[in-house]
């Protein structure tokens, strides 16, 4: 079988392996793949055989997550991004361990299959870059909407509610569960300088709508902070705390518990 063969499958079999370049790299063998991160950087895999020489582990050594985190100033992934990584790892049977995408190969025959799976997982995880908000694909409010749907919590978007002053307020969501109704403001901004203005707007709204928290079926007020951006000061939380329940988007389960009055 040679590269000059005419059968496409024979050509592929003869040439594909040339696209993967191996070299020693410290304790590992580095496999430079033909695949690229979204900015054009090469995707490298690192191989560490077991001591008995049979099988081993193929890992990206955390390079995919390092690349991804290098595109944003957000200190944490959103719940949706974390769920997408989990789904990608499940699809490709790859383990996500301490930020590393990796899988074991049990024998030499499995090596190419495992290397391809880890590389594909790396490629797909790096595409989460497209979900970063400063890439203008999705806002946190849309993420919250998707989460409420996933949690099967009924909601109405942007209800128009008159405050005691007569001003019309538009919280982001009016959610309803069996035990409680809640108004939700999502506090999100990428700028520290804008954070206080966002907080003060929500405080004013909760104060003007406070008549809805009284009576036999009071409505809960929930201030949901997008803390995936490190822009909030302690004072921002303190300002809304006396008028509403505080939830953090980095802890969506607690947010859902508040809506279900379980938290």
């Amino acid at each position: 079988m040679t590269a000059t063969a005419q059968n496409p499958c024979e050509i592929l079999a003869a040439t594909l392996s040339r696209l993967f370049v191996c070299s020693p790299h410290g304790d590992f063998t580095r496999v430079r793949t033909p695949y690229l991160y979204p900015d054009g950087d090469s995707i490298d895999l690192f191989v560490k055989p077991r001591l008995d020489g049979v099988g081993g582990t193929i890992s990206d050594l955390g390079e995919t997550i390092r690349w991804l985190r290098g595109q944003t100033v957000s200190p944490r992934r959103t719940p949706r991004q974390a769920a997408m990584i989990s789904d990608i790892c499940m699809t490709h049977n790859v383990e996500f361990f301490k930020g590393m995408l990796q899988a074991r190969y049990e024998n030499n025959n499995a090596f190419a299959d495992v290397a391809t799976r880890v590389a594909q997982a790396s490629l797909r995880v790096s595409d989460l870059w497209l979900s970063f908000r400063n890439r203008a694909v999705e806002s946190v409010t849309e993420e919250v909407e998707e989460y409420l749907i996933e949690q099967k919590i009924a909601f109405e978007k942007v209800p128009r509610l008159p405050g005691r002053s007569g001003r019309i307020w538009t919280p982001h969501f009016h959610a309803r569960t069996d035990v409680q109704s809640s108004l939700i403001y999502v506090l999100a901004t990428g700028s520290r300088s804008a954070a206080r203005a966002v907080t003060e707007h929500v405080v004013t709204a909760w104060y003007d709508l406070s008549n809805l928290r009284t009576g036999q079926n009071p409505t809960e007020f929930v201030s949901l902070f997008d803390d995936t951006a490190d822009v909030w000061a302690d004072q921002d939380f303190a300002l809304v705390r006396s008028l509403s329940r505080i939830a953090r988007w980095s802890e969506p389960d607690e947010f859902a518990q508040i809506l279900r009055r379980a938290g």
Partner: peptide, 28 residues
């Protein structure tokens, strides 16, 4: 990355994302 000695310094704009970066230790 302390395991492989790969280093990146990136300039990130809040509005645009990454606009400038130095990479050492990976090809492009």
């Amino acid at each position: 990355n302390r395991l492989i000695g790969a280093l990146t310094f990136a300039v990130i704009s809040k509005t645009e994302g990454r606009i400038y970066a130095l990479d050492l230790g990976k090809d492009h």
